[in-house]
């Protein structure tokens, strides 16, 4: 079985979010980069678990980005995976990224393709769905568990207000979220092994973005919290009714 795990580089959750060049560009100054948590904790670790159960499983990691994404993909390799592919393309929008990954996926004939539920920077969560259309392959979003049952797979996924269990066959694309696996810390052996694992660089071919970011804005700061005396809940109710008009 061959698994392709899509990896994205994102700013750490606690990074200061600021913009430069007339609010057209994210300020990377002082930002610590991490593997997008959904890609790491849920999809990559799930793939590693499958390989631990069945050593014949092959795991490839793919990322679309410049050379500055290599420390991130090495970090992912330290957790697990057999080899990584970096598509050298800045990937100006999700469609470009998906098209590049689809080209890799076609070539590798993978049984399972994992993405994270979304990236924590642009929050679009579009790659899995786009791959589904580009590869004409079934897609199960928001997967919370995956079990193999012969040649079939049993997947649980989040739905609005609950959970659904379904049975599907491979090849299939899954977007992974909480529940799929638990976060792991890479060990020294993994870190050493990652240094010698193959990291193939493929030149990107997609140059045409469908969308362009014109500018960023930061939300206007809240005018400040209005404190209400803990003994005067009638006042809070009044404010919620008359000022906020939410109840």
């Amino acid at each position: 079985m061959k698994i392709l795990v899509c990896i994205s580089k994102t700013p750490d959750t606690t990074s200061k979010i600021a913009f430069i060049e007339g609010n057209t560009k994210f300020d990377e100054n002082g930002v610590q980069w991490i593997i997008n948590p959904y890609d790491e904790w849920y999809s990559l670790v799930k793939a590693i678990e499958l390989k631990e159960k069945d050593p014949s499983v092959t795991i490839h990691l793919v990322t679309v980005g410049g050379a500055d994404t290599e420390p991130i993909i090495r970090k992912a390799l330290a957790l697990g995976g057999d080899e990584a592919i970096r598509v050298n393309n800045l990937g100006n929008d999700s469609m470009m990224v998906a098209q590049e990954i689809a080209a890799i996926a076609k070539e590798g004939a993978y049984d399972l393709i994992f993405t994270g539920k979304e990236t924590i920077d642009y929050n679009s969560g579009s790659i899995g769905s786009m791959l589904s259309a580009l590869l004409d392959t079934s897609f199960i979003p928001n997967a919370t568990s995956l079990d193999l049952s012969g040649s079939n797979i049993i997947i649980k996924r989040e739905i609005d207000g609950g959970e659904e269990t379904c049975e599907a066959s491979m090849p299939i694309i899954l977007s992974c979220q909480k529940g799929m696996a638990e976060q792991r810390i890479p060990n020294m052996r993994g870190i050493m092994a990652a240094r010698t694992k193959p990291l193939k660089v493929v030149e990107g071919t997609i140059t045409n973005a469908y969308t362009t970011i014109q500018k960023f804005d930061t939300p206007s700061a809240k005018s400040g919290v209005k404190l209400i005396d803990s003994g005067n809940m009638d006042e809070l109710v009044r404010l919620l009714k008359e000022e906020a008009k939410v109840i």
Partner: peptide, 21 residues
């Protein structure tokens, strides 16, 4: 959940740019 899961694929099939969210 469902809208997020199909809008991007529809974008692909129509060669249409997408804004999600």
């Amino acid at each position: 959940i469902n809208g997020k899961a199909i809008a991007p694929a529809v974008g692909v099939k129509l060669s249409a740019g997408l804004v999600a969210g």
